[in-house]
């Protein structure tokens, strides 16, 4: 069992999926890769294809247009995989909850493992959340 979970904890590759965010969360997410925070220390890589991903990092308020795409991306991710909702929008729809074009928080559509609130959350918060999420594996 350890042989299966140890590598998973040591090398989570994340796929970044924006579902109509204001771009601020996305920038904070990219901040994690900069020399100051350097998540590659923990083996975390940002990868370009969802087929390689271990964690789907979802930002944004989930617009109506995005729903089929989010479902598709979730299905395309090889399991076991985590879903991480980054930002107040993704967790609760935030100030956009009354908009005609918003479907609702991400967990209405796909199961979410970790919520990282904040508008936008700090990189420290994201790193700590991902580490905690890996602990639950």
């Amino acid at each position: 069992m350890a042989l299966k979970t140890w590598p998973l904890k040591k090398s989570p590759w994340i796929f970044h999926l924006s579902t109509g965010s204001c771009n601020n969360c996305d920038i904070e997410l990219l901040d994690c890769l900069t020399p100051r925070f350097d998540v590659e220390r923990f083996g975390i890589l940002l990868i370009g294809s969802v087929r390689h991903a271990d964690a789907l990092v979802v930002t944004g308020a989930l617009t109506r247009q995005c729903v089929p795409r989010v479902k598709e991306c979730y299905d395309q991710m090889p399991k076991p995989g985590l879903v991480i909702a980054v930002g107040q929008c993704a967790c609760t729809s935030c100030i956009f909850r009354d908009s005609y074009n918003i479907v609702g928080p991400i967990d209405k559509i796909i199961p979410v493992n970790v919520y990282i609130p904040g508008c936008p959350p700090k990189p420290e918060a994201m790193i700590s959340a991902i580490v905690k999420a890996l602990g639950t594996l």
């Binding site: 042989l3 299966k4 140890w6 590598p7 998973l8 040591k10 090398s11 083996g43 087929r51 271990d54 395309q76 090889p78 399991k79 076991p80």
Partner: peptide, 13 residues
């Protein structure tokens, strides 16, 4: 090594 082991343990689609 961790990357390779992890990929081996994952679902092949």
């Amino acid at each position: 090594l961790a990357d390779i082991l992890k990929l081996l343990g994952k679902e092949t689609i």
